[in-house]
Amino acid sequence: MYKKIEDKLKANGVKVIKLGVLENNQPALKFWKMNGFKILDKKTSTVVNQKISSFYLMAKDI
């Protein structure tokens, strides 16, 4: 399913996909890495369940 979305974005002229993954969400981090995304930065300011959480900013050129 993800590949279909990526193909659609590419067909519409999108050059880069960026997304955020919570630091403690290892399954999601593994999934996005397996799909070619790279970690650009680590941010600390997202509020999840009333707690400050860190997340990775990830990107992939398409």
Rank of each mutant, 00 (worst) to 15 (best):
M1K: 02
Y2S: 01
Y2T: 00
K3N: 12
K4D: 13
I5R: 02
K8Y: 13
A11N: 13
G13D: 07
G13S: 08
G13V: 12
K15E: 15
V16R: 13
V16G: 00
I17G: 01
I17Q: 06
I17H: 02
K18E: 15
G20V: 06
G20Y: 08
G20M: 07
V21R: 10
N24K: 13
N24F: 13
Q26K: 12
P27D: 05
P27M: 04
A28I: 08
A28C: 11
L29K: 11
L29D: 01
L29C: 01
K30W: 00
F31A: 10
F31C: 09
K33S: 08
K33Y: 03
M34K: 15
M34E: 12
N35Q: 06
F37P: 07
F37K: 07
F37D: 03
K38M: 06
K38H: 07
I39C: 03
D41T: 01
D41Y: 06
K43N: 12
K43D: 06
T44W: 03
T44R: 14
S45F: 10
S45C: 03
V47T: 10
V48T: 03
V48L: 13
V48D: 02
N49K: 14
S53G: 00
S53Y: 07
F55N: 11
L57D: 13
A59R: 09
A59Q: 15
A59S: 15
A59F: 12
K60M: 06
K60D: 07
D61I: 15
D61H: 07
I62L: 15
I62E: 09
